[in-house]
Amino acid sequence: MRRLMTTTHRRIAAAVNARPAAIRWILAGPGAITAALLFTTAMPLWFPAGAAGVNHIAYPLVLAPLAWAAAFIHACLVENLVRGLAFSALVHGVCGALIVIALSGSLRW
C-alpha cells in the first residue's frame, strides 16, 4: 500500500515537473480564482459569527479579494510545484467538501 502511494506520488511529481510552465499557469490563473471562491464560500461554515451574528458573512465578503491575491502570489512564488499543487488541491478539496455537505443540508449553523 505504502509502496503504491510512493509510486503514485512519484508519477504525479514526474508529470508535474515535466510541464512546469503549464502547471503554474493553471495554478495562478483558474486555480487561484477557484481556490479563492471556494475558500470564501466555505468561510461562513467555520468562521465564528460573533455576538452580532454577522462576522461569518462580513469577513469573507470583505476578504475575498485578499484570498485571491494570496492564492495568486503563492502560485507565482512557490518553488516546489508539486507541493504548491498539493496545497491548492487541499484547499479545493476541503472547502469543496464543506460546501457540498452544507448545500446537501446536513450541515447547518
Binding site: L37, T40, I57, L61, V62, A64, L103
Partner: peptide, 30 residues
C-alpha cells in the same frame, strides 16, 4: 485596488455565493 475589487465583487459574486451556503440561496432572507 482592494476596496475597489470589494465593491465590484461583493454584490455580483461573493454575496450570492455566501447566501447559498448560509441562507439556502434566499437573498431576500439574507
Amino acid at each position: 485596488g482592494f476596496t475597489g475589487a470589494y465593491f465590484s465583487f461583493a454584490g455580483t459574486v461573493v454575496f450570492p455565493l455566501l447566501t447559498e451556503v448560509a441562507f439556502g440561496g434566499d437573498e431576500v432572507a439574507a
